[in-house]
Each structure stands twice: as structure tokens, then as C-alpha cells.
Simulated assay, not measured.
Amino acid sequence: MTEATHLPLSHKINRLFAVMHPRSAPERSTESVAEQVSDQLRRAVAPSYLEQLRGGGFDDERDGAAVEFEILAAIASCFGVAPRYLTTTGQAAVSIDRELELLATMRDANVASIALRGSDVDRAMLARVIRGTDDDAEAGSLPH
């Protein structure tokens, strides 16, 4: 696996915190996520454990193998994504990560919906178009 296709577990978890919240709301706190994970699992999961995950404490473990699947699934559930984002590796994980990045770009540009045809959409190009449209709207050249 090349460096370009390896996403550390901490990167994926931090991406969820950064992306999976409404535009008008701040990122969720580690404490609130730990509380929700604890409720789902019916056992305590300390905020400090999530901080270790976010800080890279388990990145050296093979594909996050030292972290219980149930904890990863509960974290994913808190953010409304499939557990496979946190458990998969390689190009599949990179593809999901790019989709989350595009989602954040759309959220930040206040895009309500978008229609795409085909699967050959260059997501980087689409993100640039969305950002450009948002910049034009802020400059007054497009109606809000």
C-alpha cells in the first residue's frame, strides 16, 4: 500500500469531526461523542480514549486492529456514516474520504443539492466549481 492510499485512523476520525456537522454549528466536542458512544455501547468510553484515537495513538496499529470494532462502529454511527469508513483501508477509504471532503465543500458553499451524471465526475474539479460559485455569490455576481 502506498502512502497516498493509506489514511491513518486518526485522520478518518478527525475528518468526521470536521465534516459531519451543520454549516451553522461548530464541530462536536469529543466529550459529547464519547457520551453518545457510551450510551450506544452501554458501557463507559472515556473522552480521553477518543482523544487518543484522534491524536494518532492507534495509527501505528495495523489498520486500527487494536480498537474494538464496536467502538469504531459506534463512532461512525454518531456521525451518520457507515462503519466501513473507519474500518476499511486502501483506495476504498481514500474514496470515502474524498466524498466527505466534497460534502464539506458543498456544506461550506451552502449547496442544497447537486445532480451528477455518470461516475467519472472529477471530485476535485467539482469542489473547485462549487468554491468558485460560492466566491462569485459572495462577490455579488450571482443572486443569493
Rank of each mutant, 00 (worst) to 15 (best):
G55V: 06
D39L: 12
P22S: 05
R123K: 13
E68S: 02
S48L: 07
A4E: 15
Q91E: 15
H11W: 15
L102Y: 12
L86P: 08
S95H: 13
D108F: 10
E101T: 14
A82C: 08
P22Q: 04
D136V: 05
A139S: 13
T133Y: 10
R62W: 11
E3G: 10
G132W: 15
A4P: 14
I96S: 06
E68K: 01
G57N: 05
P8N: 12
R62N: 10
Y85I: 06
L102E: 05
C78F: 02
A4W: 15
G56Q: 03
R54G: 04
S119L: 12
T5C: 15
V94F: 12
H21E: 06
L9V: 15
S48Y: 11
I130K: 01
V19G: 00
E99K: 15
G57L: 06
A112P: 11
I75G: 00
A93K: 01
A4L: 14
D39I: 05
S38G: 03
E35K: 13
A46T: 01
T30R: 02
S10W: 09
A137Q: 04
S141P: 10
P143D: 02
E61K: 10
A74E: 00
A137C: 08
A109D: 08
D60P: 06
V67T: 05
F17Y: 12
V121K: 13
L103P: 09
T105A: 09
I114V: 13
L72G: 01
L72I: 07
V129A: 09
A46K: 04
F79A: 02
L50P: 04
E68L: 00
T2S: 15
G140H: 00
A74N: 03
A74M: 02
D122H: 12
V129T: 12
S32E: 08
G57D: 03
R28L: 07
E27A: 14
A76S: 06
G64P: 08
L50Q: 00
M20A: 09
A93C: 07
F69V: 03
T89L: 06
L72F: 04
L86Q: 00
E99V: 15
M125P: 07
F79Y: 11
R42H: 03
V45C: 00
I114M: 10
R107Q: 10
L142K: 06
F69L: 10
D108P: 06
